[in-house]
Amino acid sequence: MTQEADLKELGQALHRRLLTKQDGRVTAEIAEVFLPLLANALHRKFPNLPDPHQAETVAIDSLLRYFAQPEKFDPDKGSLIGYLYLAAYRDLLNLLKHSQKFVELHPRALEHEVSVAVGADNPEAHLLEEASPIVQRALAKVTDPIDRELVALMMDGVRETAAYAAVLGIADSPLREQEKIVKRHKDRLKKMLQREWQRRDHQRR
């Protein structure tokens, strides 16, 4: 599967979750995946903006509009990143037209531009990890491979006990037992990271 296809599929999945309005995490997931990509793509497209933060501001505006009215995006017509990019691109063009400094007449193939901005040959998991600096930073604190997998599952919003049980090798235990063990491991990891952060915070001060 190509990276564009991965991104499109991911965007559709997140969009479906956003529409349900019952998933608290999805907005953060969308922002962490798509906002940096969007801002990078705009930066590449408009490298010489008079205000260097204009691309970021427009990217954020585009995302906020999507959060407010997600139903305006039609997944059958294109990818989510393409939709966000197009909206941001138009906003930026309008801004520049108003300031009469730059006029772009031929917008190029958006999917292509986004994929160039993202990079060439990353698999999806790597893409997600790269795109989310928050996940990256948390994982940097965890050295044990099993703990890393557990933290990654938690930060990916996985709620099923079975997924954690599989990583911990307790899939054969009774469900109640699995739930107890998984909860214990989650709490332990939170505490461990909390201590790490406290230490870092203490060092900073």
Binding site: A31, P36, E56, T57, I60, P133, I134
Partner: peptide, 9 residues
């Protein structure tokens, strides 16, 4: 930069 962007959002 990505962190700053998310913080700005």
């Amino acid at each position: 930069p990505s962190m700053q962007l998310l913080t700005a959002l």
